[in-house]
Simulated scan of single mutants.
Amino acid sequence: MSVELNSKTAEVKRDSCTLMAPDDRSKYGWLPQIPVWWIGAAAVCLGFLLLLVILGLVAQIGLMECENLVYNLTKDRDALRDERDQLKRNSSSLKKELDVLQSQYKAVAASRDKLQEDVRRLNHSKTERICYQGWIKFNNKCYYASDKGAAKTWEESRKDCLQRRADLVIITTKDELVFVSKFYSRTWIGLSDMQQENKWRWVDGSDLEGRGFWQSGEPNNVGNEDCVELSNPNGEWNDMPCENEIPWMCED
């Protein structure tokens, strides 16, 4: 019975050897046959590993880009924050400068207003007449009434006025007529027709314009009346001899 088992074993070994092709043998030994499904599984595994590696690389690259983006954004944010802080400082400085300029403007405006007021006062003082002591101001003119009890001829009265750097009064308005008539009942005024009869002329060389303020029936030239007085009660004009002596009124 052992003989038969041995012979069968020998046949199996011989059959196994005969089944292998001569190419499957190697001088280094015998290589076993690899199943096809195992090769496929290995390829899938390798592909999966390769995919993981690629995904890892992609994720790493994406992470680096994100880190760079975050870094750049942080840097830009810090720069913007610094710029904002600088703008705040500049704004504060500009506000202080504005406050200073406003204060200076107010001071300049106040100085300007004061100068304008001074100019107004100066201009007013230029047009506003200032009368000498003893003179009387009326409607921005200065008048001098002869002393109480003093009386002179028309020529002497005018000479007195000229010595005072003035002349006998020239009356051109009703208000002035009323003002002059308040001082004396009779007063010499600066009107005469000495140069030409019935050609009444003021002491400044100007002719009498219009009717004037003559009393009724005057001038009548009774007794060579070439000079004019202002006489009450109506304070109107009357021609009379220039040699008569009465008070007088000067006008500057």
Rank of each mutant, 00 (worst) to 15 (best):
E4Q: 11
E4P: 03
N6T: 10
K8D: 12
T9E: 13
E11T: 11
D15M: 11
S16M: 15
P22I: 14
D23L: 12
R25N: 14
K27F: 12
Y28H: 11
Q33N: 11
Q33R: 11
I34N: 07
P35W: 05
P35D: 08
W37P: 01
A41R: 11
A41T: 11
C45E: 07
L46R: 05
G47D: 06
G47V: 04
G47W: 12
L51N: 03
G62V: 12
C66F: 14
N68I: 07
L69A: 14
L73F: 13
L73G: 11
K75N: 15
D78N: 15
A79M: 05
D82V: 06
R84H: 12
R84W: 11
D85M: 13
D85G: 05
K88N: 13
N90L: 15
K96S: 08
L98H: 06
L101R: 12
Y105H: 08
A107E: 15
V108W: 07
A109W: 09
S111M: 05
S111D: 15
D113T: 05
L115R: 09
L115W: 08
R120K: 10
L122D: 10
H124A: 10
S125G: 02
Y132H: 06
K137E: 04
K137W: 00
A145C: 01
S146A: 08
S146P: 01
D147G: 10
A151R: 05
A166Y: 04
A166F: 04
A166H: 02
V169T: 14
I171N: 01
T172I: 01
L177G: 00
L177E: 07
V178Q: 06
Y184P: 00
S185Q: 11
S185C: 03
R186H: 07
R186A: 09
W188Y: 05
Q195P: 00
E197V: 04
W200H: 08
S206H: 04
L208C: 07
Q215N: 11
S216G: 06
G217S: 03
P219Y: 10
N221D: 09
V222T: 10
N224I: 03
E225R: 14
D226G: 02
C227V: 05
C227P: 00
E229S: 09
N232C: 06
N232T: 02
N234R: 10
G235D: 03
G235S: 01
M240A: 14
P241A: 14
E245I: 04
E245D: 02
W248F: 08
E251Y: 00
D252R: 08
